[in-house]
Amino acid sequence: MARRPAGEYHEPTATRIGYGNCLSRLGEYPRIFVLNADLAAPCGTTAFIEKYPERAINVHERRSINVGVQECNMMAMAAGIASCGKIAVANSFGIFSTGRAWEIVRQDISYTRLNVKIIGSHTGIALGEYGVSHQSIEDVGLMRCLPHIVVVEPSDAVQADRLFEKVLLYEGPVYFRIGRNPTPLLYTNDNEFGIKPVLDFEIGKGILLREGEDWTIIASGPVLCEALKVAKMARESIQVIDMPTIEPVDEEIIVRAARKTKRIATVQDHYRNGGLNDAVLQAIAKHRLSVEFHSIALTDFAESGSPKDLYEKYGLSAHRIMEQLGLN
């Protein structure tokens, strides 16, 4: 695959846009084939399908298809396309690509280990006003429980752009979880959190963003910003780790954090069961680490509302995280 430089980002940008930019800049690679379930614009694939429409005059440029609102069929088609040597990228909202289509993902993609990239956009309660029918809060668990599927959730648009390139290079099924709303940039110069920019990301590797002595907060996805706000606000010394790969989780960085701070909290815009919480706990149990552990996650369905209000009500805002951890 020909490498092209990632785009530049200067303002809050949704992770779905970072993903779409990567897909567009690497789109000339002929193995990539994109499938949409009538949600091209929301999922960020418009630029790619404009370059490679399904009715292109040159048949070799017909590398996208809109299958309509039929995610189960889309996953079966993606599996068939991948079996012919293509990299199939199947796009929908997370609630549909992992929920409605779960059986097909299990039978046709997980079992066969085919090279399908499953995109779940508009995830978590950060989706906001769409309400419970579209808020995908169990998608990571649905994908983690299946063998052979790598699960990735980028925290900002820069990471989404650069990390999806690694996803395309990876041979095998991947679930790539992205969000709807503009998110503060973390991995750029002069970001608001004082983080040193990272130019390269790896599947299976966490990133230590901030050193600390009293607590370690491990987060994935755009909610990481709330964890970083906690680290700035609290009197305690808070270490913050970005964990973009949830399966397989970076056990090494978890072990180091546990031995250093002795207290770990996970934060994820997802149901408590099956997500980052379980991945980190499994690593702690495997290595027999003695730590105080807290999970900041959802314990029930949410409701319709603004992302800010929902984060405050359901415990994912910086203020509520501090409250739950007893920080000052």
Rank of each mutant, 00 (worst) to 15 (best):
V240G: 04
D309N: 11
G221T: 01
I296S: 03
S237I: 05
V105L: 12
T183I: 08
R100T: 11
I253P: 09
S97M: 12
I238T: 01
S155Q: 06
T123H: 07
G212V: 01
F48T: 09
G120I: 10
N36D: 15
T299C: 05
N66T: 05
E171L: 06
L39K: 13
G85E: 14
N36M: 09
T112E: 13
Q324P: 00
V140I: 15
Y175E: 04
S97Q: 02
N73F: 14
S237A: 10
Q239T: 01
A79Y: 03
G141S: 11
F33V: 14
T13I: 11
R63M: 12
K166D: 08
V249T: 09
D278T: 12
T261G: 07
N66R: 04
R180T: 03
E138R: 04
D278E: 15
F96S: 03
P182Y: 05
E236G: 02
N91Y: 01
V59R: 14
R4F: 13
Y29M: 09
R4D: 01
S295E: 06
E129T: 10
G131R: 09
E202Y: 13
P248K: 10
R25W: 11
C84Y: 13
R3S: 10
S133W: 13
I81S: 04
H122M: 11
H134Q: 14
L310F: 08
A219G: 06
R177D: 09
Y52H: 08
L209S: 03
G80Q: 07
D269W: 14
G68R: 13
P147F: 08
E236H: 04
R16W: 07
R263E: 08
P248S: 12
L146S: 05
E50R: 12
F164N: 07
R259E: 15
R25C: 06
G27T: 07
Q239K: 15
E8A: 10
G315V: 00
W102A: 08
V267L: 15
R320T: 03
R25Q: 09
L185R: 02
V89F: 00
K229D: 13
V59C: 08
Y9I: 04
M75R: 00
C22S: 14
S110A: 14
C84E: 15
G120R: 07
K232G: 01
Q282D: 12
E71P: 07
S220P: 05
F293V: 13
R288M: 10
V151I: 05
R16L: 09
R106D: 00
C145G: 04
E28S: 15
E236S: 04
A14K: 06
V198T: 10
A126T: 07
G305W: 10
F33E: 02
L199I: 02
V255H: 08
G179E: 06
E303H: 12
E192W: 00
E226G: 01
S295P: 03
G80V: 15
I104S: 04
N181R: 13
S121Y: 02
I95A: 14
H294N: 08
R235S: 13
V291K: 01
E11L: 07
S133V: 09
L168F: 11
Y19R: 06
Y111R: 13
S220N: 13
I109N: 03
F201H: 09
R272I: 15
A160M: 11
D156A: 06
Q282P: 00
N115D: 15
H134R: 08
L289P: 04
S295N: 12
G120Q: 11
C145N: 06
L169P: 00
V249L: 12
I95V: 15
